[in-house]
Design a protein around this nucleic acid. Structure first.
Lengths: 249, 249
DNA sequence: ACTTGAAGTTGACGTAGCGTCATCTCCTAC
DNA sequence: GTAGGAGATGACGCTACGTCAACTTCAAGT
Protein backbone atom coordinates (compact mmCIF):
# COMPACT_ATOMS: atom_id res chain seq x y z
CA UNK A 1 0.00 0.00 0.00
CA UNK A 2 1.41 3.34 -0.97
CA UNK A 3 -0.09 6.82 -0.89
CA UNK A 4 0.00 9.66 -3.35
CA UNK A 5 1.02 13.11 -2.23
CA UNK A 6 -2.53 14.39 -2.01
CA UNK A 7 -3.66 11.36 -0.08
CA UNK A 8 -0.92 11.91 2.46
CA UNK A 9 -1.86 15.56 2.58
CA UNK A 10 -5.45 14.69 3.43
CA UNK A 11 -4.46 12.11 6.00
CA UNK A 12 -2.08 14.38 7.77
CA UNK A 13 -3.79 17.69 7.32
CA UNK A 14 -0.87 19.48 5.69
CA UNK A 15 -0.84 20.67 2.09
CA UNK A 16 0.91 18.96 -0.77
CA UNK A 17 3.08 22.03 -1.08
CA UNK A 18 4.36 21.39 2.41
CA UNK A 19 5.18 17.79 1.56
CA UNK A 20 7.09 18.91 -1.52
CA UNK A 21 8.89 21.41 0.65
CA UNK A 22 9.84 18.72 3.16
CA UNK A 23 11.12 16.67 0.26
CA UNK A 24 13.06 19.61 -1.15
CA UNK A 25 14.88 20.22 2.13
CA UNK A 26 15.43 16.51 2.67
CA UNK A 27 13.31 16.29 5.79
CA UNK A 28 10.85 13.78 4.38
CA UNK A 29 11.74 12.20 1.05
CA UNK A 30 9.04 9.97 -0.41
CA UNK A 31 9.54 6.21 -0.31
CA UNK A 32 10.11 6.24 -4.05
CA UNK A 33 9.52 8.42 -7.03
CA UNK A 34 7.88 7.12 -10.19
CA UNK A 35 9.60 7.66 -13.56
CA UNK A 36 7.09 10.40 -14.26
CA UNK A 37 8.28 12.20 -11.14
CA UNK A 38 5.31 11.43 -8.91
CA UNK A 39 6.00 10.91 -5.25
CA UNK A 40 4.87 7.78 -3.45
CA UNK A 41 4.75 7.46 0.32
CA UNK A 42 4.69 4.32 2.45
CA UNK A 43 3.78 3.63 6.08
CA UNK A 44 7.27 4.48 7.19
CA UNK A 45 7.00 7.98 5.74
CA UNK A 46 3.61 8.43 7.39
CA UNK A 47 5.09 7.65 10.77
CA UNK A 48 7.99 9.96 10.17
CA UNK A 49 5.57 12.67 9.12
CA UNK A 50 3.60 12.21 12.32
CA UNK A 51 6.75 12.69 14.35
CA UNK A 52 7.66 15.73 12.29
CA UNK A 53 4.26 17.29 12.86
CA UNK A 54 4.37 16.56 16.58
CA UNK A 55 7.71 18.31 16.90
CA UNK A 56 6.55 21.13 14.66
CA UNK A 57 3.58 21.69 16.96
CA UNK A 58 6.04 21.93 19.80
CA UNK A 59 7.50 24.90 18.02
CA UNK A 60 10.75 23.39 16.80
CA UNK A 61 12.26 24.59 13.55
CA UNK A 62 12.49 22.19 10.66
CA UNK A 63 16.23 21.76 10.96
CA UNK A 64 15.93 21.12 14.69
CA UNK A 65 13.31 18.51 13.86
CA UNK A 66 15.75 16.93 11.46
CA UNK A 67 18.32 16.81 14.24
CA UNK A 68 15.96 15.15 16.67
CA UNK A 69 14.86 12.54 14.17
CA UNK A 70 18.41 11.88 13.06
CA UNK A 71 19.63 11.43 16.61
CA UNK A 72 20.33 7.79 17.11
CA UNK A 73 20.31 7.94 20.86
CA UNK A 74 17.65 9.44 23.04
CA UNK A 75 20.27 11.42 24.87
CA UNK A 76 21.06 13.90 22.14
CA UNK A 77 17.42 14.20 21.12
CA UNK A 78 16.51 15.11 24.67
CA UNK A 79 19.31 17.66 24.61
CA UNK A 80 17.70 19.46 21.67
CA UNK A 81 14.34 19.41 23.40
CA UNK A 82 15.83 20.79 26.60
CA UNK A 83 17.36 23.69 24.73
CA UNK A 84 14.06 24.31 23.07
CA UNK A 85 12.33 24.30 26.44
CA UNK A 86 14.78 26.86 27.76
CA UNK A 87 14.16 29.02 24.73
CA UNK A 88 10.40 28.75 25.23
CA UNK A 89 10.70 29.81 28.86
CA UNK A 90 12.86 32.80 28.00
CA UNK A 91 10.49 33.81 25.27
CA UNK A 92 7.51 33.51 27.57
CA UNK A 93 9.16 35.68 30.22
CA UNK A 94 10.04 38.25 27.60
CA UNK A 95 6.44 38.37 26.39
CA UNK A 96 5.28 38.86 29.95
CA UNK A 97 7.53 41.87 30.31
CA UNK A 98 6.37 43.21 26.97
CA UNK A 99 2.77 42.96 28.10
CA UNK A 100 3.57 45.10 31.11
CA UNK A 101 5.40 47.68 29.07
CA UNK A 102 2.63 47.84 26.50
CA UNK A 103 0.11 48.32 29.29
CA UNK A 104 2.20 51.16 30.68
CA UNK A 105 2.42 52.69 27.24
CA UNK A 106 -1.34 52.45 26.80
CA UNK A 107 -1.84 54.07 30.20
CA UNK A 108 0.50 56.90 29.27
CA UNK A 109 -1.39 57.40 26.04
CA UNK A 110 -4.72 57.54 27.81
CA UNK A 111 -3.49 60.08 30.30
CA UNK A 112 -2.88 62.28 27.33
CA UNK A 113 0.87 61.85 27.52
CA UNK A 114 3.08 61.24 24.55
CA UNK A 115 5.55 58.52 23.83
CA UNK A 116 9.14 58.15 24.76
CA UNK A 117 9.64 60.35 27.79
CA UNK A 118 13.35 59.62 28.02
CA UNK A 119 15.70 62.28 26.80
CA UNK A 120 19.15 63.18 27.88
CA UNK A 121 18.56 65.14 31.03
CA UNK A 122 15.00 64.26 31.62
CA UNK A 123 12.72 66.86 32.97
CA UNK A 124 14.16 69.42 30.69
CA UNK A 125 13.14 70.50 27.28
CA UNK A 126 14.08 69.59 23.71
CA UNK A 127 11.66 66.73 24.04
CA UNK A 128 7.93 66.48 23.71
CA UNK A 129 7.46 68.16 27.09
CA UNK A 130 8.65 71.50 25.94
CA UNK A 131 5.31 73.18 26.57
CA UNK A 132 5.19 71.74 30.05
CA UNK A 133 8.78 72.70 30.66
CA UNK A 134 8.02 76.29 29.71
CA UNK A 135 5.28 76.39 32.32
CA UNK A 136 7.45 74.82 34.93
CA UNK A 137 10.70 76.67 34.48
CA UNK A 138 9.89 79.63 32.32
CA UNK A 139 10.61 80.52 28.73
CA UNK A 140 14.07 81.80 29.29
CA UNK A 141 15.52 78.63 30.72
CA UNK A 142 13.91 76.51 28.01
CA UNK A 143 15.12 78.69 25.19
CA UNK A 144 18.60 78.71 26.63
CA UNK A 145 18.55 74.92 26.89
CA UNK A 146 17.32 74.51 23.36
CA UNK A 147 19.93 76.90 22.10
CA UNK A 148 22.63 74.85 23.78
CA UNK A 149 21.67 71.43 22.46
CA UNK A 150 20.91 72.79 19.01
CA UNK A 151 24.61 73.36 18.61
CA UNK A 152 25.66 69.97 19.88
CA UNK A 153 27.61 67.69 17.61
CA UNK A 154 26.60 64.05 17.33
CA UNK A 155 29.62 63.15 19.41
CA UNK A 156 28.44 65.44 22.16
CA UNK A 157 24.99 63.92 22.10
CA UNK A 158 26.50 60.51 22.28
CA UNK A 159 28.78 61.43 25.15
CA UNK A 160 25.92 63.05 27.03
CA UNK A 161 23.79 59.95 26.62
CA UNK A 162 26.64 57.70 27.70
CA UNK A 163 27.28 59.85 30.76
CA UNK A 164 23.62 59.84 31.67
CA UNK A 165 23.38 56.07 31.37
CA UNK A 166 26.59 55.66 33.29
CA UNK A 167 25.26 57.73 36.17
CA UNK A 168 22.15 55.59 36.39
CA UNK A 169 24.09 52.35 36.28
CA UNK A 170 26.55 53.40 38.95
CA UNK A 171 23.76 54.71 41.12
CA UNK A 172 21.84 51.44 40.74
CA UNK A 173 24.94 49.54 41.78
CA UNK A 174 25.38 51.60 44.92
CA UNK A 175 21.72 51.18 45.72
CA UNK A 176 22.07 47.42 45.30
CA UNK A 177 24.96 47.48 47.75
CA UNK A 178 22.81 49.26 50.30
CA UNK A 179 24.90 52.43 50.30
CA UNK A 180 23.14 55.36 51.99
CA UNK A 181 22.22 58.37 49.86
CA UNK A 182 24.35 60.56 52.11
CA UNK A 183 27.45 58.54 51.20
CA UNK A 184 30.13 60.48 49.38
CA UNK A 185 30.13 58.08 46.42
CA UNK A 186 26.46 58.71 45.87
CA UNK A 187 26.82 62.44 46.29
CA UNK A 188 29.66 62.46 43.77
CA UNK A 189 27.38 60.99 41.17
CA UNK A 190 24.67 63.49 42.00
CA UNK A 191 27.27 66.19 41.55
CA UNK A 192 27.88 64.93 38.03
CA UNK A 193 24.14 64.96 37.45
CA UNK A 194 23.84 68.51 38.74
CA UNK A 195 26.74 69.69 36.62
CA UNK A 196 25.17 68.06 33.60
CA UNK A 197 22.00 70.01 34.29
CA UNK A 198 23.91 73.29 34.56
CA UNK A 199 24.88 72.93 30.91
CA UNK A 200 21.55 74.50 30.15
CA UNK A 201 19.88 75.18 33.48
CA UNK A 202 21.04 76.02 37.01
CA UNK A 203 18.53 74.79 39.55
CA UNK A 204 18.57 76.17 43.07
CA UNK A 205 17.95 74.22 46.27
CA UNK A 206 14.19 74.26 45.89
CA UNK A 207 13.95 73.54 42.21
CA UNK A 208 16.53 70.75 42.32
CA UNK A 209 14.62 69.10 45.16
CA UNK A 210 11.45 69.56 43.16
CA UNK A 211 13.04 68.00 40.12
CA UNK A 212 13.99 64.94 42.18
CA UNK A 213 10.45 64.65 43.47
CA UNK A 214 9.14 64.84 39.94
CA UNK A 215 11.27 61.88 38.92
CA UNK A 216 9.18 59.86 41.33
CA UNK A 217 5.77 61.46 40.91
CA UNK A 218 5.63 61.69 37.18
CA UNK A 219 5.11 58.22 35.77
CA UNK A 220 6.68 59.17 32.49
CA UNK A 221 9.99 59.77 34.18
CA UNK A 222 9.70 57.27 37.01
CA UNK A 223 9.22 54.52 34.48
CA UNK A 224 12.60 55.15 32.97
CA UNK A 225 14.44 54.94 36.23
CA UNK A 226 12.42 51.99 37.44
CA UNK A 227 13.29 50.12 34.30
CA UNK A 228 16.95 50.42 35.25
CA UNK A 229 16.31 49.21 38.77
CA UNK A 230 13.20 49.02 40.92
CA UNK A 231 13.32 51.79 43.48
CA UNK A 232 15.93 53.81 41.66
CA UNK A 233 13.67 56.81 41.18
CA UNK A 234 13.08 57.17 44.91
CA UNK A 235 16.75 56.59 45.66
CA UNK A 236 17.71 59.29 43.19
CA UNK A 237 15.15 61.69 44.66
CA UNK A 238 16.49 61.18 48.18
CA UNK A 239 20.06 61.64 47.03
CA UNK A 240 19.14 64.81 45.15
CA UNK A 241 17.39 66.17 48.21
CA UNK A 242 20.48 65.60 50.36
CA UNK A 243 22.61 67.22 47.69
CA UNK A 244 20.32 70.22 47.43
CA UNK A 245 20.25 70.76 51.17
CA UNK A 246 23.99 70.42 51.68
CA UNK A 247 25.37 72.02 48.53
CA UNK A 248 22.78 74.41 47.13
CA UNK A 249 21.22 77.56 48.42
CA UNK B 1 22.24 70.83 12.88
CA UNK B 2 21.78 67.78 10.75
CA UNK B 3 23.14 64.25 11.04
CA UNK B 4 24.49 61.84 8.48
CA UNK B 5 23.17 58.33 8.29
CA UNK B 6 26.06 56.84 10.18
CA UNK B 7 25.87 59.43 12.88
CA UNK B 8 22.20 58.66 13.41
CA UNK B 9 23.07 54.98 13.41
CA UNK B 10 25.59 55.49 16.17
CA UNK B 11 23.29 57.70 18.19
CA UNK B 12 20.38 55.32 18.00
CA UNK B 13 22.18 52.03 18.00
CA UNK B 14 20.66 50.69 14.79
CA UNK B 15 22.64 50.08 11.62
CA UNK B 16 22.67 52.33 8.59
CA UNK B 17 21.13 49.49 6.65
CA UNK B 18 18.13 49.65 8.95
CA UNK B 19 17.79 53.38 8.39
CA UNK B 20 17.90 52.87 4.63
CA UNK B 21 15.29 50.18 5.04
CA UNK B 22 13.04 52.49 7.03
CA UNK B 23 13.47 55.04 4.29
CA UNK B 24 12.72 52.49 1.60
CA UNK B 25 9.43 51.47 3.22
CA UNK B 26 8.53 55.06 3.97
CA UNK B 27 8.62 54.64 7.73
CA UNK B 28 11.35 57.19 8.31
CA UNK B 29 12.34 59.34 5.33
CA UNK B 30 15.32 61.60 5.97
CA UNK B 31 14.73 65.33 6.39
CA UNK B 32 16.30 65.92 3.01
CA UNK B 33 18.50 64.21 0.49
CA UNK B 34 21.53 65.91 -1.01
CA UNK B 35 21.95 66.03 -4.79
CA UNK B 36 24.54 63.29 -4.44
CA UNK B 37 21.93 61.09 -2.83
CA UNK B 38 23.15 61.32 0.74
CA UNK B 39 20.54 61.28 3.47
CA UNK B 40 20.40 63.99 6.09
CA UNK B 41 18.44 63.72 9.31
CA UNK B 42 17.23 66.47 11.61
CA UNK B 43 15.98 66.51 15.22
CA UNK B 44 12.48 65.70 14.10
CA UNK B 45 13.63 62.49 12.47
CA UNK B 46 15.59 61.56 15.58
CA UNK B 47 12.49 61.87 17.71
CA UNK B 48 10.47 59.88 15.25
CA UNK B 49 13.17 57.23 15.25
CA UNK B 50 13.06 57.05 19.02
CA UNK B 51 9.35 56.46 18.92
CA UNK B 52 9.82 53.83 16.24
CA UNK B 53 12.42 51.99 18.28
CA UNK B 54 10.30 52.12 21.40
CA UNK B 55 7.38 50.55 19.57
CA UNK B 56 9.70 48.07 17.91
CA UNK B 57 10.96 46.98 21.31
CA UNK B 58 7.38 46.43 22.30
CA UNK B 59 7.22 43.85 19.58
CA UNK B 60 5.10 45.70 17.04
CA UNK B 61 5.64 45.12 13.35
CA UNK B 62 6.90 47.96 11.21
CA UNK B 63 3.57 48.53 9.52
CA UNK B 64 1.81 48.55 12.87
CA UNK B 65 4.36 51.12 14.01
CA UNK B 66 3.54 53.17 10.96
CA UNK B 67 -0.13 52.96 11.88
CA UNK B 68 0.47 54.10 15.43
CA UNK B 69 2.62 57.02 14.39
CA UNK B 70 0.20 58.02 11.64
CA UNK B 71 -2.77 57.91 14.00
CA UNK B 72 -3.87 61.45 14.54
CA UNK B 73 -5.81 60.73 17.68
CA UNK B 74 -4.67 58.79 20.68
CA UNK B 75 -7.77 56.68 20.47
CA UNK B 76 -6.83 54.69 17.40
CA UNK B 77 -3.21 54.36 18.47
CA UNK B 78 -4.33 52.86 21.75
CA UNK B 79 -6.54 50.51 19.78
CA UNK B 80 -3.52 49.12 17.94
CA UNK B 81 -1.63 48.73 21.18
CA UNK B 82 -4.55 46.94 22.81
CA UNK B 83 -4.71 44.45 19.97
CA UNK B 84 -1.02 43.94 20.30
CA UNK B 85 -1.38 43.32 24.01
CA UNK B 86 -4.06 40.71 23.38
CA UNK B 87 -1.80 39.03 20.87
CA UNK B 88 1.08 39.03 23.35
CA UNK B 89 -1.08 37.42 26.02
CA UNK B 90 -2.27 34.71 23.66
CA UNK B 91 1.28 34.03 22.57
CA UNK B 92 2.46 33.81 26.15
CA UNK B 93 -0.26 31.35 27.08
CA UNK B 94 0.53 29.27 24.05
CA UNK B 95 4.21 29.17 24.96
CA UNK B 96 3.31 28.07 28.46
CA UNK B 97 1.36 25.14 27.07
CA UNK B 98 4.20 24.30 24.73
CA UNK B 99 6.61 24.20 27.64
CA UNK B 100 4.43 21.63 29.37
CA UNK B 101 4.13 19.50 26.27
CA UNK B 102 7.85 19.63 25.64
CA UNK B 103 8.48 18.59 29.22
CA UNK B 104 6.13 15.67 28.80
CA UNK B 105 7.89 14.71 25.59
CA UNK B 106 11.26 14.85 27.31
CA UNK B 107 9.94 12.69 30.14
CA UNK B 108 8.64 10.15 27.65
CA UNK B 109 11.99 10.08 25.93
CA UNK B 110 13.86 9.55 29.16
CA UNK B 111 11.63 6.68 30.17
CA UNK B 112 12.87 5.01 27.04
CA UNK B 113 9.61 5.53 25.21
CA UNK B 114 9.39 6.71 21.66
CA UNK B 115 7.55 9.60 20.15
CA UNK B 116 4.01 9.88 19.04
CA UNK B 117 2.27 7.13 20.95
CA UNK B 118 -1.08 7.90 19.38
CA UNK B 119 -2.18 5.64 16.62
CA UNK B 120 -5.61 4.65 15.53
CA UNK B 121 -6.61 2.11 18.11
CA UNK B 122 -3.94 2.69 20.63
CA UNK B 123 -2.54 -0.25 22.43
CA UNK B 124 -2.35 -2.20 19.29
CA UNK B 125 0.39 -2.64 16.79
CA UNK B 126 1.33 -1.03 13.46
CA UNK B 127 3.12 1.55 15.50
CA UNK B 128 6.44 1.68 17.28
CA UNK B 129 5.14 -0.64 19.98
CA UNK B 130 4.97 -3.60 17.73
CA UNK B 131 7.65 -5.52 19.64
CA UNK B 132 5.86 -4.84 22.89
CA UNK B 133 2.54 -5.74 21.36
CA UNK B 134 3.94 -9.08 20.22
CA UNK B 135 4.92 -9.87 23.78
CA UNK B 136 1.63 -8.75 25.14
CA UNK B 137 -0.80 -10.29 22.73
CA UNK B 138 1.20 -12.79 20.74
CA UNK B 139 2.49 -12.90 17.21
CA UNK B 140 -0.67 -14.11 15.61
CA UNK B 141 -2.85 -11.23 16.69
CA UNK B 142 -0.23 -8.67 15.71
CA UNK B 143 0.32 -10.15 12.29
CA UNK B 144 -3.40 -10.29 11.68
CA UNK B 145 -3.73 -6.66 12.70
CA UNK B 146 -0.92 -5.57 10.48
CA UNK B 147 -2.36 -7.52 7.60
CA UNK B 148 -5.67 -5.73 8.01
CA UNK B 149 -4.40 -2.18 8.12
CA UNK B 150 -1.90 -2.81 5.36
CA UNK B 151 -4.84 -3.13 3.00
CA UNK B 152 -6.61 -0.04 4.19
CA UNK B 153 -7.24 2.75 1.72
CA UNK B 154 -6.49 6.32 2.70
CA UNK B 155 -10.20 6.91 3.06
CA UNK B 156 -10.45 4.08 5.52
CA UNK B 157 -7.57 5.41 7.55
CA UNK B 158 -9.18 8.78 7.60
CA UNK B 159 -12.54 7.39 8.64
CA UNK B 160 -10.95 5.33 11.35
CA UNK B 161 -9.14 8.32 12.74
CA UNK B 162 -12.27 10.44 12.62
CA UNK B 163 -14.24 7.74 14.42
CA UNK B 164 -11.55 7.40 17.06
CA UNK B 165 -11.47 11.12 17.69
CA UNK B 166 -15.22 11.28 17.74
CA UNK B 167 -15.41 8.59 20.41
CA UNK B 168 -13.01 10.51 22.61
CA UNK B 169 -14.84 13.77 22.18
CA UNK B 170 -18.24 12.30 22.93
CA UNK B 171 -16.85 10.46 25.91
CA UNK B 172 -15.24 13.61 27.25
CA UNK B 173 -18.58 15.41 26.91
CA UNK B 174 -20.42 12.77 28.88
CA UNK B 175 -17.70 12.84 31.52
CA UNK B 176 -18.05 16.61 31.75
CA UNK B 177 -21.77 16.19 32.28
CA UNK B 178 -21.11 13.84 35.18
CA UNK B 179 -22.69 10.83 33.47
CA UNK B 180 -21.85 7.52 35.19
CA UNK B 181 -19.77 4.99 33.28
CA UNK B 182 -22.60 2.50 33.62
CA UNK B 183 -24.93 4.78 31.69
CA UNK B 184 -26.18 3.41 28.42
CA UNK B 185 -24.83 6.36 26.41
CA UNK B 186 -21.33 5.69 27.70
CA UNK B 187 -21.60 1.97 27.12
CA UNK B 188 -22.75 2.60 23.54
CA UNK B 189 -19.56 4.48 22.85
CA UNK B 190 -17.49 1.72 24.43
CA UNK B 191 -19.32 -0.68 22.16
CA UNK B 192 -18.12 1.29 19.17
CA UNK B 193 -14.62 1.21 20.61
CA UNK B 194 -14.77 -2.53 21.12
CA UNK B 195 -16.09 -3.12 17.63
CA UNK B 196 -13.30 -1.00 16.26
CA UNK B 197 -10.84 -3.19 18.06
CA UNK B 198 -12.37 -6.35 16.65
CA UNK B 199 -11.35 -5.23 13.18
CA UNK B 200 -7.99 -6.75 13.95
CA UNK B 201 -8.23 -8.18 17.43
CA UNK B 202 -10.98 -9.65 19.61
CA UNK B 203 -10.21 -9.09 23.26
CA UNK B 204 -11.97 -11.16 25.90
CA UNK B 205 -13.21 -9.94 29.29
CA UNK B 206 -9.80 -10.11 30.89
CA UNK B 207 -7.73 -8.63 28.08
CA UNK B 208 -10.19 -5.82 27.40
CA UNK B 209 -10.15 -4.88 31.08
CA UNK B 210 -6.37 -5.05 30.98
CA UNK B 211 -6.26 -2.83 27.92
CA UNK B 212 -8.34 -0.23 29.75
CA UNK B 213 -6.00 -0.39 32.71
CA UNK B 214 -3.05 0.11 30.41
CA UNK B 215 -4.55 3.31 29.04
CA UNK B 216 -4.14 4.67 32.56
CA UNK B 217 -0.89 3.03 33.63
CA UNK B 218 1.16 3.60 30.51
CA UNK B 219 2.03 7.25 30.33
CA UNK B 220 2.49 7.07 26.61
CA UNK B 221 -1.19 6.28 26.17
CA UNK B 222 -2.55 8.13 29.18
CA UNK B 223 -1.03 11.32 27.90
CA UNK B 224 -3.11 11.20 24.76
CA UNK B 225 -6.36 10.80 26.58
CA UNK B 226 -5.45 13.33 29.21
CA UNK B 227 -4.72 15.85 26.52
CA UNK B 228 -8.33 15.54 25.35
CA UNK B 229 -9.65 15.96 28.89
CA UNK B 230 -8.11 15.55 32.32
CA UNK B 231 -9.31 12.33 33.84
CA UNK B 232 -10.48 10.85 30.56
CA UNK B 233 -8.09 7.89 30.73
CA UNK B 234 -9.46 6.75 34.07
CA UNK B 235 -13.04 7.35 32.93
CA UNK B 236 -12.42 5.26 29.83
CA UNK B 237 -10.80 2.50 31.88
CA UNK B 238 -13.79 2.32 34.24
CA UNK B 239 -16.23 2.29 31.36
CA UNK B 240 -14.29 -0.48 29.62
CA UNK B 241 -14.26 -2.52 32.80
CA UNK B 242 -18.03 -2.26 33.12
CA UNK B 243 -18.39 -3.19 29.46
CA UNK B 244 -16.10 -6.19 29.83
CA UNK B 245 -17.94 -7.49 32.88
CA UNK B 246 -21.41 -7.08 31.44
CA UNK B 247 -20.87 -7.90 27.79
CA UNK B 248 -17.80 -10.08 27.48
CA UNK B 249 -16.92 -13.49 28.74
C1' DA C 1 44.23 69.43 -10.92
C1' DC C 2 44.65 64.83 -9.51
C1' DT C 3 44.56 61.09 -6.40
C1' DT C 4 43.26 58.64 -2.55
C1' DG C 5 40.48 56.86 1.15
C1' DA C 6 36.43 57.14 3.86
C1' DA C 7 31.66 57.29 3.66
C1' DG C 8 27.70 56.76 1.10
C1' DT C 9 24.74 54.95 -2.62
C1' DT C 10 21.88 51.33 -5.01
C1' DG C 11 20.95 46.66 -6.23
C1' DA C 12 20.55 41.79 -5.13
C1' DC C 13 20.53 37.56 -2.55
C1' DG C 14 19.56 35.11 1.89
C1' DT C 15 16.83 34.00 5.93
C1' DA C 16 11.83 30.16 7.56
C1' DG C 17 8.18 28.00 6.02
C1' DC C 18 5.56 27.60 3.22
C1' DG C 19 1.06 30.13 0.10
C1' DT C 20 -0.03 31.10 -4.29
C1' DC C 21 0.01 31.46 -8.99
C1' DA C 22 1.61 29.99 -13.81
C1' DT C 23 3.04 26.67 -16.90
C1' DC C 24 3.95 21.84 -18.30
C1' DT C 25 3.62 16.94 -18.06
C1' DC C 26 1.56 12.60 -16.95
C1' DC C 27 -1.91 9.21 -16.59
C1' DT C 28 -6.35 7.33 -17.01
C1' DA C 29 -10.84 6.97 -18.81
C1' DC C 30 -13.77 7.31 -22.58
C1' DG D 1 -7.16 10.24 -29.76
C1' DT D 2 -8.43 13.40 -26.52
C1' DA D 3 -10.21 15.60 -22.41
C1' DG D 4 -9.62 16.29 -17.68
C1' DG D 5 -7.69 15.74 -13.27
C1' DA D 6 -3.58 15.05 -10.60
C1' DG D 7 0.96 16.15 -10.11
C1' DA D 8 5.52 18.34 -11.30
C1' DT D 9 8.59 22.27 -11.40
C1' DG D 10 9.86 26.98 -11.13
C1' DA D 11 9.30 31.62 -9.29
C1' DC D 12 7.65 35.37 -6.47
C1' DG D 13 5.86 36.98 -1.91
C1' DC D 14 6.11 37.67 3.14
C1' DT D 15 9.37 40.07 7.83
C1' DA D 16 13.13 42.88 8.90
C1' DC D 17 16.82 43.52 7.94
C1' DG D 18 22.40 41.24 7.33
C1' DT D 19 25.72 40.90 4.13
C1' DC D 20 28.31 41.30 0.13
C1' DA D 21 29.36 43.68 -4.43
C1' DA D 22 29.99 47.34 -7.38
C1' DC D 23 29.82 52.12 -7.94
C1' DT D 24 29.65 57.35 -6.51
C1' DT D 25 30.55 61.29 -3.76
C1' DC D 26 33.13 64.15 -0.97
C1' DA D 27 36.80 66.23 1.58
C1' DA D 28 41.69 66.26 2.20
C1' DG D 29 46.43 65.99 0.67
C1' DT D 30 49.99 66.48 -2.99
Amino acid sequence: MSWSINEVAQLSGVTSRTLRHYDAIGLLPPAWTAPGGRRHYEQEQLFRLQRILLLRDLGLGLDAIGDVLAAQDHHSAVEVLRQHRTWLLRERRRLGQLVKTVEDTIATFEEGGTMNPSEIYQGFSHNEYEAEARQRWGDEAVDRGNAVVAEWTPQQWQDAKAEFNSQNQELAQLMDDGVAVTDQRVQDIIDRHYNGMTLFWTPDRESYTGLGQMYVDDERFAQNYESVRTGLAAYLRDAMKVYAETRLS
